[in-house]
Amino acid sequence: MKFLHGFRLRCSRAAFTLVELLVVIAIIGVLVGLLLPAVQYARETARRTQCMNNLRNQGLAFHQHHDSHGHFPTGGWGWNWAGDPDGGFRERQPGGWVYNILPFVEQSNLRAQGQGANTAAKRTAVASVMRTPLKIMNCPSRRQPQLYPNLIQMVNADAVSTSAKTGYAANCGSYSRNEIDGGPAAGSTTPPAPTGVNEENGISYRLSRVRFADVLDGQTNTLMVGEKYLSVTNWQTGADAADNENMYCGYNNDLYRSTNAIYYPPKKDRRDIVAGTQAYTWGSVHTGGFMVALCDASVRMINYSIDADNFRRLGSRADKEPVNLP
Rank of each mutant, 00 (worst) to 15 (best):
A186F: 02
G202L: 00
Q144S: 13
V210N: 03
G183T: 02
P149M: 11
S176I: 08
P192T: 07
E227F: 00
A164F: 02
I180Y: 12
A159N: 15
T189A: 10
V210M: 04
I152L: 11
V215C: 05
A125T: 05
G218C: 00
S128H: 13
P184D: 02
A125W: 00
P192G: 06
G226V: 08
D217W: 09
G167R: 05
V215H: 03
R211I: 05
N138M: 14
S176A: 12
N171G: 03
G218A: 06
F212Y: 13
A193E: 14
A169E: 00
P184N: 02
V197S: 13
I136T: 12
K135W: 09
A164R: 00
L134R: 00
I136Q: 09
I136K: 09
A159K: 15
D181L: 07
G187E: 10
G202C: 01
N198L: 11
P140R: 06
G226M: 03
V215M: 03
M137S: 13
S128F: 06
A157I: 01
P149L: 12
Y168M: 01
K228C: 10
G218M: 05
R211D: 10
E179G: 15
R177P: 01
I136G: 05
T220Q: 15
R131C: 13
G202S: 05
G202Y: 07
R142K: 11
N150E: 14
T190W: 01
K165L: 03
P149S: 08
L223I: 07
T220R: 15
T189Q: 10
L216H: 13
